[in-house]
Computed example of a mutant assay.
Amino acid sequence: YRFFGEPVVEACVENGASCIDISGEPQFLEGMYLKYNGKAAGKGVYIIGSCGFDSIPADMGVLYTRDKLKGTLTAVESFLMVKSGPEGSCIHDGTWKSAVYGLADQDNLRKLRKKIGYAPVPVVGAKLKRRGLVFYNQEFKQYSIPFMGSDVSVVKRSQRYLHTELKETPVQYGAYVNIGGLGSVIKLMFAGIFFLLLVKFSFGRKLLTKYPEFFSAGRFTKKGPTQKQMDGTSFTMTFFGEGYSEGQDPQNGKPNVKICTEVKGPEPGYVATPIAMVQAAVSLLEDTDCLPKQGGVYSPGAAFSKTRLIDRLNKRGVEFSVISKPEV
């Protein structure tokens, strides 16, 4: 999307056509917001990014958790777990390239956000504490790390919109991924350090993009996953939310209610993503009365919070459910 996405957005806006995409690249997503939000609003069209695995499960999962809590949800953490079958799993190198160029261009992303001039999202309730780069998760009995995808930035954009435009209580959000035991941690640390060193330099980026299979230990390939690999792979995203019971002021005292929800589905990149994308498109076409009142460039949560998107996803294998009911 960084290299080829904008002409599509531009053509849609100029010709009065709404569009969705499955980008997981914050710089592209937020760049399109800066450049085309006003124009899209003027044309009455909806440009809705990150409608695949990045970031429908996370963005809509936070809203689902909020709606299932009897009270005021103020903070959520999600933990992603991807399971693969005997054939293993891999990802096409297009995702690898997005990561390489995205990490190399972090300075420009910061400049872009400064140019946009986002209004700060107020912290309601107890502040969500940031976890470390690696930590042992007692809930899952394995190690976890921060999720490096676009989920956090997408959810924050949705929460900002819902707060500023609809006066809803903003939810703090942290995203993590479970990686397994200590051996996995050690391997990931060495690979991560090596990756970050190479990505800083032009020749390093060329090596990374030319030989993705070698540098990712087979996780990213130019061919992508086989059908057997896709059939044997699934994901689970577990949400732990906390907040304040009905009648309790979130500005006073500690959170007194918790909830656990889950989004699960088939292989994330090539099975769950098209399901999410198509159902987002159906919601865009059929739930017009539930969309934001004016066109613009939106995140999924901002665009679809009042639609039947979650119901549609539930019927097609990307399932949202409550794991533990709210407890005071």
Rank of each mutant, 00 (worst) to 15 (best):
residue 275 I to T: 06
residue 67 D to M: 07
residue 226 T to Q: 01
residue 48 I to D: 11
residue 296 G to Q: 15
residue 296 G to Y: 07
residue 272 A to N: 04
residue 15 N to F: 07
residue 72 T to W: 08
residue 57 P to M: 13
residue 305 S to N: 14
residue 90 C to A: 07
residue 325 K to R: 09
residue 264 K to F: 07
residue 81 M to L: 07
residue 110 R to N: 14
residue 207 L to Q: 03
residue 292 P to G: 06
residue 89 S to Y: 13
residue 313 L to C: 08
residue 273 T to F: 05
residue 167 K to E: 15
residue 22 I to E: 06
residue 122 P to W: 00
residue 280 A to P: 09
residue 70 K to V: 15
residue 232 G to F: 03
residue 221 T to A: 05
residue 5 G to E: 02
residue 262 E to L: 04
residue 266 P to V: 02
residue 265 G to Q: 11
residue 176 Y to V: 01
residue 303 A to F: 05
residue 314 N to K: 07
residue 316 R to S: 04
residue 107 D to N: 11
residue 132 G to D: 13
residue 297 V to Y: 07
residue 3 F to G: 11
residue 121 V to M: 00
residue 255 P to H: 05
residue 174 G to S: 15
residue 297 V to P: 07
residue 288 T to N: 00
residue 93 D to M: 08
residue 137 N to M: 03
residue 47 I to E: 11
residue 287 D to F: 13
residue 283 S to N: 10
residue 88 G to M: 02
residue 246 E to H: 13
residue 246 E to N: 10
residue 20 I to K: 09
residue 55 S to T: 02
residue 45 V to C: 14
residue 119 A to C: 00
residue 63 L to D: 00
residue 5 G to Q: 06
residue 296 G to P: 12
residue 284 L to C: 15
residue 12 C to G: 01
residue 85 G to H: 02
residue 123 V to S: 02
residue 121 V to T: 09
residue 76 V to E: 05
residue 55 S to E: 06
residue 23 S to E: 14
residue 95 T to S: 07
residue 19 C to H: 04
residue 36 Y to I: 02
residue 106 Q to W: 04
residue 169 T to F: 14
residue 76 V to Q: 02
residue 72 T to E: 07
residue 254 K to S: 08
residue 197 L to H: 11
residue 205 R to F: 10
residue 226 T to H: 01
residue 312 R to P: 12
residue 192 G to V: 06
residue 213 E to D: 12
residue 165 E to C: 10
residue 51 C to W: 01
residue 231 D to E: 14
residue 74 T to N: 10
residue 280 A to W: 04
residue 67 D to H: 12
residue 57 P to R: 05
residue 174 G to F: 07
residue 144 S to L: 02
residue 13 V to F: 03
residue 56 I to M: 15
residue 186 I to W: 06
residue 327 E to Q: 13
residue 159 Q to D: 08
residue 306 K to P: 09
residue 120 P to R: 01
residue 46 Y to L: 01
residue 69 L to A: 10
residue 105 D to W: 06
residue 166 L to S: 05
residue 60 M to T: 11
residue 130 R to W: 01
residue 178 N to C: 10
residue 49 G to V: 04
residue 311 D to Q: 15
residue 127 K to D: 08
residue 192 G to C: 05
residue 30 E to L: 10
residue 269 G to C: 04
